[in-house]
Amino acid sequence: MQLIWNRSQALARALTLIGFTGLLVLALMTTSDVLMRWLFQAPLQGVNDVISVVMAVVISACIPANLAMKQNIRVEVFGAVAGPRLKAALEAFSSLLTFILIALIAWQFVSYVTSLKVNGDRTWVLGWQVWPWWSAATAMLWLAAFVQAMVLITDIASLFSGPDVDARANDDTSSPL
């Protein structure tokens, strides 16, 4: 169990790395577009086209790690007064609802991508097909659902065996506030 949990965390981190390398590449591309426009009056074609499709993959790639590390804003006033047992139950409940939502989104994205393919949606300037990019995003969301399932299982396990099994780090410096 611990092994699967560790593996899915590693997977989530790897996806983030892929996603943010993509973001870095987009930033480099936008910067060269600005420089080319400024220095040579010769901007690149279709930068925004690339951003809009790559961004979908970048963002969806961030979701598994966000779920694995439980980085979503939560209010834990109630848990502060409740006992450890109740707190663990709340933890499992919250993970269950998160799983339901992510799984529903992942499921809905399949038909969304199908409709993009059927309608032949394309980007504005370059005329790229958009469905392959959204398929990649959908795959990320399915992985996110898998990671969340692991989170849920760990939470349920610690509900029955005491809170110490839970080995997740909870470093909170990444809030947007």
Binding site: T16, F20, A61, N66, Q71, N72, I73, S174, P176
Partner: peptide, 20 residues
């Protein structure tokens, strides 16, 4: 590098989930 990525991506996903 991993630390930077984890920080930036965690809060990014969080904001997008709030937006949905």
């Amino acid at each position: 590098f991993l630390q930077v990525m984890a920080e930036a991506s965690g809060s990014t996903a969080m904001i997008y989930i709030m937006v949905f």
